[in-house]
Amino acid sequence: MKTTHTKMHDTPFVIAGKSFSNRFLLGTGKFKNKIDLAESILASETEIVTVALRRIDLERHEENILEYIPSNVTLLTNTSGARTAKEAIRIARLAKESGYGNWVKIEVINDSKYLLPDNNETIAATEVLAAEGFVVLPYMYPDLYAARALVKAGAASIMPLGSLIGSNQGLKAKEFIKILIQEIKDVPIIVDAGIGSPSQAAQAMEMGADAVLVNTAVATAGDPATLAKSFSMAVAAGRLAYLSKLPQQKDIATASSPLTGFLYE
């Protein structure tokens, strides 16, 4: 039988005017070696990777992590280590001065136990850096007011956490991320942190997230490259499901064939 189904058309994934064809982002921490990282980037075909500025060894002895990142991949320097807006701003400027471009993921964390982001400080840093011409992607706690404020401050995307960093707990913040997806239309929403398995990444995409960032799960897998590829596929699959207008889960049963249709026959 010949089908008439044409290929699903997706809208491009655009951040600050730059288009990407892959909606899976990879973090570069915690890998056991840099070869694993390089292979994970290639296998997943990710186009955006985050690197903590504090892990880039500019002048010294350590192998430079950047040598393992292909030049066609967009580098998103993160401000890991910043405890205040002031420190995040300083780190972002340092990254730019050091030649790592103006894409920055703002991470302001002042709690070493839970590593939860400080939304207030994040908004303050975003405002300053966006005004300076940085492409700012803030990592945030999924709070609607904060998300609105970030957009207003000039964020190019917002990155709500799925659950605690490195926890592999998945979409614990699901209901709140859903609200952001419904309400924040001006910038893409990238679910970041806590995504522990490809099925969780797919779920975030099915909900309508624009992209997913993963680090720990890939870095600590037995075979990081294979898992990275799997994540990338899951993100693509989740996106397709979203575009297909996936029927939503319902709390009550609904019959596949209406029971009262006869009334209108």
Binding site: F31, K32, N33, K34, L53, R54, R55, I56, D57, R60, H61, E62, G81, K86, E87, R90, I91, L94
Partner: peptide, 19 residues
């Protein structure tokens, strides 16, 4: 460490001078 599949981290910090 490398032989044991562990990544030896020499730098994990970059000093930031706050103006």
């Amino acid at each position: 460490l490398k032989k044991r599949n562990l990544d030896p981290v020499l730098t994990d910090w970059r000093r930031i001078e706050l103006e």
